[in-house]
């Protein structure tokens, strides 16, 4: 079994009196796609916001152990440091691209920290010093690599806001990947995609997980409602309901878990609830 990359233990997030996440424990292993699923309002996006530093958890530890032996406590890091040093990248449920900038510019902004190691070097670049040209060449090569991967090379010079919806989703993933993450958090990447686009997305996610030439492997943490996508590509699924974990395991185990079926279908007569190979897919 792969080593744990992210270990969530006792994660609790309260907003005033509202408990959004209640003592949540799970782990995401490196080289795997871990899906977080659950009904609406289960606290999935809140978990993401805690991991990526947009929220400060009320309690609990988020321990990231990237390859190389470092151990990082994400709950103590500021948002931009998580992306920069811990190399956890994310996308958003409602796409957040830089609409007025071109596709290529979006990918270069993602490589800001590689292009500008310090403010002083950023300012020296005004006068052509500090080795900026070499850095920029490398950044453009990286951007081209991901443009090819998401099939957007043709549209590299178009403004991001003018792309069709599915292309914007893919661009957001490419942009997150340009930060060279060890873990990619995708918040409902298949929302609004047609079945063909969903299949392409699944292929892309597998490619991100497995790595390849010029691209190290990157673990994926996924929030998704499209059960077809979740069941087919996930290595490991965590099910949340009302801020608590109700199930955890492989897709097959989760599908068969009565607690999951109950959460999705609501409580009913035992006879009416299909058992065995519960059609969770159809429900979502």
């Amino acid at each position: 079994m792969a080593s744990p990359l992210l270990q969530v233990s006792g994660l609790t997030m309260r907003f005033g009196g509202l408990v959004a996440i209640d003592a949540l424990d799970f782990e995401a292993r490196s080289g795997e796609i871990t899906a977080v699923i659950g009904p609406n309002g289960a606290g999935k996006t809140t978990v993401f916001n805690c991991i990526t530093g947009f929220y400060k958890p009320t309690e609990g530890q988020l321990t990231l152990s990237p390859p190389g032996g470092r151990v990082l406590s994400l709950e103590r890091m500021a948002g931009h440091r998580i992306a920069h040093y811990a190399r956890v990248a994310r996308t958003f449920q409602n796409i957040r691209l830089f609409a007025g900038m071109t596709v290529l510019e979006n990918l270069l902004v993602a490589q800001h920290n590689a292009l500008m190691p310090s403010v002083a070097r950023g300012l020296l670049a005004v006068f052509g010093l500090g080795g900026y040209r070499g850095l920029e060449r490398k950044a453009i090569a990286q951007a081209k690599f991901w443009l090819d991967a998401v099939e957007l090379t043709e549209r590299a010079d178009d403004p991001a806001g003018s792309l069709p919806y599915g292309a914007q989703r893919r661009l957001e993933i490419a942009r997150a990947m340009c930060t060279n993450p060890v873990m990619l958090c995708l918040d409902e990447p298949a929302a609004g995609l047609n079945p063909r686009e969903s299949d392409e997305l699944a292929t892309l996610m597998r490619r991100i997980r497995d790595g390849g030439p010029g691209q190290p492997s990157c673990s994926v943490l996924l929030i998704e409602h499209d059960m077809g996508v979740v069941m087919s590509i996930s290595d490991h699924i965590v099910v949340l309901d009302h801020g608590r974990k109700i199930s955890d395991g492989t897709p097959a185990e989760v599908k068969a878990d009565p607690a999951v079926i109950k959460a999705y279908l609501g409580e009913g007569d035992e006879d009416e609830t299909p058992g065995g190979d519960a059609p969770v897919e159809d429900v979502a």
Binding site: T52, G53, F54, G79, H80, R81, I82, A83, H84, A89, R90, F92, R96, L97, F98, A99, G100, M101, E105, L108, V109, A110, Q111, H112, N113, L115, M116, V119, G122, L123, A125, V126, Y132, R175, A176, T179
Partner: peptide, 22 residues
Amino acid sequence: LPLGRAWEALREDEVACRALGI
């Protein structure tokens, strides 16, 4: 240069900038 692009990105979407480690 990256600094100017980061400024424009900040104008476009500050939250996304933070998520990209800026």
